[in-house]
Design a protein around this nucleic acid. Sequence first.
DNA 1: AAGATAGTCAACCGCCGCTGA
DNA 2: GTCAGCGGCGGTTGACTATCT
Length: 191
Amino acid sequence: MDKKPSSSEEAEVRKGPWTMEEDLILINYIANHGEGVWNSLARSAGLKRTGKSCRLRWLNYLRPDVRRGNITPEEQLLIMELHARWGNRWSKIARHLPGRTDNEIKNFWRTKIQKHIKQPENCTGQSSDRNDSASSSHVSGGFEEGTENYSYTGNLEAFTLPAPPAETNENFWNMEDFWSMQLLNSDNKLL
DNA sequence: AAGATAGTCAACCGCCGCTGA
DNA sequence: GTCAGCGGCGGTTGACTATCT
């Protein structure tokens, strides 16, 4: 797939961050027509984006059921357990975390968890414990890295992240705001 | 205050598997 | 059986932001 577009098409395709207008177009189109074949959706909606780009934007950001914001400790634990079981099967893991996207989980893992794996000493503060911990299941947080399987062996607190800043997004484009706006709009359009 | 560095995350890329013609 | 089109996935990049010096 990923056939090369003709040069005229190539010039048409937009890349990079989505604008609010594009978001609106995509949301409105899906609200009215539903999700469908993404390439034709992109064309029909008048978006100069690839179908893939539209799909990604919708799934990772615009869907009304997408939960944005901090991963809870429970979710962290679940991610660790599922990752220990399945490895980097992000989409599979994401299905067990309602409202979370594979991209979000992947980013979370790479930025938060992987950092701890790379620095186990700093994480526990006890470098010599690590070998012992590999065979027991009750010690402080850490991972056993195997070929594909390693297991999260420790308590969650070792991985609990510092309290993130309170979400003060008053100037931010908040999807909840948007969807409430959409409801108002759709009242006019659909009723 | 300004520059350097680290952290975060949205978006893109390339590959793979599925499906229908 | 082959090919094209598409969706889905995981890896990676790059822009932006926060923190540090």
